[in-house]
């Protein structure tokens, strides 16, 4: 958006945010510095974190085994804090494709993927992903063969999900950095698969 320098009044939600924040600071419940640090921390969580986990799992079979057994602990090993909520990694294979949705709201592995995309929170995706996953995936440009089973994971409670995509052929000998570069956010939600450019 172009900065016009014109005065724009706060909208309802901005006003609520400012009022609540100022009250909390005034009452000594939080400090401005804590609010700023938390916002900064949220901004720093990007899908690159998840891609690092995937690339490491592709490169280290022992780590992959741990990730599938206990996602939270495996991520801690990489120095990634996955607080309170448990991470379940689900593995794509030639026989099974996984995709993630939260039909009730917008539960999302924010600790690894950051802020969810708008479509993930849309009523359209949330209602159709569980009802007609193949049609939804086709709209994302992913046509899966009928023989491949689709498993849709509805994040209804305390678990959070990460799809571990299949490592594409032709990436033998790649470094973890090279591998991480082809793992997009959508691959880890399960609406895309990694491809070599």
């Amino acid at each position: 958006m172009k900065e016009t320098g014109k005065y724009q009044p706060y909208n309802y939600f901005q006003l609520m945010e400012v009022s609540l924040r100022e009250l909390l600071v005034e009452k000594g419940i939080v400090t401005e510095a804590q609010v700023a640090a938390t916002v900064e921390d949220m901004r720093n969580r990007t899908p690159e974190r998840g891609a690092r986990v995937v690339a490491h799992a592709w490169s280290d079979p022992e780590f992959k085994r741990k990730l599938l057994a206990d996602g939270t602990r495996a991520c801690e090993e990489l120095g990634l804090d996955v607080p309170a909520l448990r991470l379940v990694a689900v593995e794509n294979t030639p026989a099974v494709h996984n995709m993630i949705v939260c039909t009730l709201c917008s539960c999302y592995p924010r600790m690894l993927l950051g802020i969810p995309p708008d479509w993930y929170k849309s009523r359209n995706y949330r209602s159709r992903a569980v009802r007609e996953p193949r049609a939804v995936l086709a709209e994302f440009g992913l046509d899966l063969p009928d023989e491949m089973k689709i498993r849709v994971h509805d994040s209804t409670a305390d678990m959070r999900y990460l799809v571990l995509p299949m490592r594409p052929a032709g990436t033998e000998g790649w470094s973890e950095q090279q591998l991480a570069a082809i793992v997009s956010r959508d691959c880890m939600i399960g609406v895309a698969v990694p491809r070599i450019a």
Binding site: V130, E132, P133, R134, D146, E147, M148, K149, I150, R151, V152, H153, D154, S155, T156, A157, D158, M159
Partner: peptide, 11 residues
């Protein structure tokens, strides 16, 4: 419509 083994996993 889809693979008869398509599944949904819910908590």
């Amino acid at each position: 419509r889809g693979n008869p083994e398509d599944a949904l996993e819910v908590e």
